[in-house]
């Protein structure tokens, strides 16, 4: 398991959170329970299986939704 923390540009509508959450949960290999979208600090935190997906893949899913990623940190968990 690895953990990724993705910092986004300021989120301003609560429905963005729902979109991002659903999209990240939809990535194969992401541990659904661990997905956290922090609205006020504009961060996404999630654990994932590094054999199935990667921090880059998760980042891309979010960027494809139209939310620019500022910074991404991947850690072993």
């Amino acid at each position: 398991m690895e953990k990724v923390i993705i910092k986004l540009e300021t989120l301003s509508c609560p429905s963005c959170m729902q979109k991002i959450e659903n999209a990240v949960k939809g990535v194969d290999g992401v541990e659904k329970e661990s997905v956290k979208v922090l609205f006020n600090s504009s961060k996404v935190k999630t654990a994932f299986d590094q054999n199935k997906t990667s921090g880059e893949a998760i980042e891309k899913v979010i960027e494809d939704l139209g939310y620019p990623v500022i910074k991404k940190t991947v850690k072993f968990a």
Binding site: C13, S15, Q18, K19, N22, A23, G26, D64, L65, G66
Partner: peptide, 16 residues
């Protein structure tokens, strides 16, 4: 519309 489309893609009916 772009945001609405993206929302629908992940099965969310948003304000957009």
């Amino acid at each position: 519309a772009v945001q609405a489309y993206q929302a629908l893609k992940v099965k969310v009916v948003s304000i957009d």
